[in-house]
Design a protein around this nucleic acid. Structure first.
Length: 480
RNA sequence: GGCGACGUGGCCGAGUGGUUAGGCAGAGGUCUGCAAAACCUUGUACAGCGGUUCAAAUCCGCUCGUCGCCUCCA
């Protein structure tokens, strides 16, 4: 069964055929590093992380480039407004490049915590000014771009196919769009390739137009993707909100420069918070660092993975809590599989092969993670039943464990190698042993009042006892 | 106004022209001094109105509603 991928460009699922047999070249638009990464970033990058992990699992050699935009764009539209990165630098009283570096590091840190495998290359926009200027000058030579007042704009009217990605007709775009007054553009839809730097603009480079300037947003991805992946590559991805204008503008430039460019455009959908899109103005903006103060990153990763990458996912306290309960179910099964004595038993692949097949079938179909999870939950039930048998077949246990490790661990990234994730001071274990012994003694003597007192007092501080035939274990709960 | 996605059981969330998605919550059971946890079993469904069809929640049309993009945005 071949992999099928939904291509935004054609609006349908297509058989995936890489440019180079057995290899996949991927470019995903990265963050602009002027503030901390938020829940929406996680939705996009976790989605693509799983897609790439699966392609690797399927045997493809994946090469993954994700840029870092470290030059600010304008806060307002078009010609007006202030550079976001510079504004932030002024607020923080830091060098703009230090701001970018700092937030880039913080971005990688939170992505690490989400289990997102780092890209092979994270090229910076500022490190590719030369390439951008070359491309811009070539576009001017070709008559597709023009200089105006020291800035350079791409003339969208010169590209007959402009709008093909987002299904827009240039003539109709004026309706509803804001009309710019006294624009230096020939047409309001023209987009900036290069902006003239006013005096005092800290991030600026020498240019052949007015002397000093800085790049627009849309050129960096065109030149960096080509440089590292070639003129033609397999997948170009990003959030749905980048479809227009960003990706449309990339395509226009690539077409102008006669690059074949990306074969497949993939867009992950948005994350909303209680039904509304997250935005700074509506005050429902949550950064990942904030979320991780009180929530396990792994649960949030599961929360994202449990819905399809092309669906909108709605975040709330309750949806996240539900995700935690679901994930716990899988983890519990895996813990028990690992505890089972399988010494000397090898993974044979003879058991539960049906589940692997169903999992791949789901993922082959445009990476249907919700169905893939359904398979894992079915496997979980089967494995629980297996472990409940009088003498479970150790080979079957090993196979089930291995499936969870590869499908749930390697591909979906929600089964860690070490599930005893709660970090405790080792002395706490000794203290707890004393309490467990005491309570066992009380129970033996039918002094349930004292036994329950111990249990209840600990429970109120978030430590719960689990009694079973084999004895009592304890566990820290997530909630206080 | 233009473009796009979507409306599935208490909630989340797949899928499909006739046959079980899955999860959470609920119910019953196992275990247990009680409880919790865990496990097993389990009900309720396809926005509304028309049409096509032997058969539609699934195809077509209309209505209502939700969300996103059209402006920096993952």
């Amino acid at each position: 069964m071949p992999v099928q991928i939904y291509n935004t460009l054609t609006g349908q699922k297509e058989l995936f055929q890489p440019v180079h047999e057995g290899q996949v070249s991927v470019y995903v638009c990265g963050p602009t590093v002027y503030s901390d990464s938020h829940l929406g970033h996680a939705k996009t990058y976790v989605s693509f992380d799983i897609i790439l992990r699966y392609l690797r699992y399927r045997g493809f050699k994946v090469f993954y480039v994700q840029n870092i935009t470290d030059v600010g764009h304008l806060l307002g539209d078009g010609d007006e407004g202030e550079d976001k990165l510079l504004k932030r630098a002024r607020e923080l009283k830091q060098e703009p490049m230090a701001v970018a570096e700092n937030f880039a590091r913080r971005h990688f840190d939170v992505m690490d915590r989400l289990g997102v495998i780092r890209p092979d290359i994270s090229p910076r926009a500022t490190g590719h000014i030369t390439e951008q200027l070359e491309a811009i000058e070539k576009l001017i030579e070709l008559g597709l771009a023009y200089e105006s007042n020291g800035s350079v704009y791409f003339e969208i009217g010169k590209d007959p196919k402009y709008g093909e990605l987002s299904n827009r007709i240039v003539e109709e775009m004026q309706d509803g769009a804001r009309i710019e007054v006294r624009s230096e553009k020939r047409y309001p839809g023209d987009f900036a390739l290069w902006k003239r730097a006013e005096s005092g603009h800290l991030m600026r480079w020498r240019d052949p137009f007015s002397g000093w300037g800085y790049p627009g947003w849309h050129t960096e991805c065109v030149v960096m993707s080509s440089r590292y992946l070639g003129e033609e590559f397999d997948i170009h991805g990003g959030g749905m909100d980048l479809k227009f204008p960003h990706h449309e503008c990339e395509i226009a430039q690539a077409r102008g420069l006669a690059k074949p460019f990306a074969r497949n455009w993939m867009h992950s959908n948005m994350l909303t918070i209680e039904g509304q899109k997250m935005s700074k103005s509506s005050g429902n903006f949550v950064t990942l660092l904030e979320l991780f103060k009180n929530n396990d990153p792994l649960i949030f990763r599961y929360f994202i993975a449990a819905s399809h990458y092309r669906s909108v996912v709605d975040f709330s306290e309750s949806t996240l809590f539900t995700a935690g309960s679901s994930l716990k179910r899988l983890h519990h099964t895996v813990r028990n599989l690992r505890k089972f004595d399988k010494s000397g038993v090898k993974v044979s692949g003879n058991h539960f092969e049906e589940f692997r097949r169903r999992f791949c079938e789901a993922m082959d179909d445009d990476f249907s993670t919700p169905q893939a999870f359904a398979v894992l939950f079915d496997l979980s039930r089967e494995a629980n039943n297996l472990l409940a048998e009088k003498r479970p077949d150790p080979e079957a246990v090993a196979d089930a464990e291995h499936l969870f490790a590869t499908l749930g661990g390697d591909v979906l990234g929600i089964i860690p190698k070490d599930l005893d994730d709660v970090q405790t001071d080792l002395r706490l274990n000794d203290v707890m042993d004393i309490l467990l012994e005491l309570r066992a003694e009380f129970r033996k003597n039918k002094n349930f009042e004292s036994a329950d007192l111990i249990r209840e007092r600990l429970e109120s501080m978030g430590i719960v006892f689990k009694d079973s035939a084999e004895g009592t274990t304890w566990e820290m709960t997530d909630k206080k």
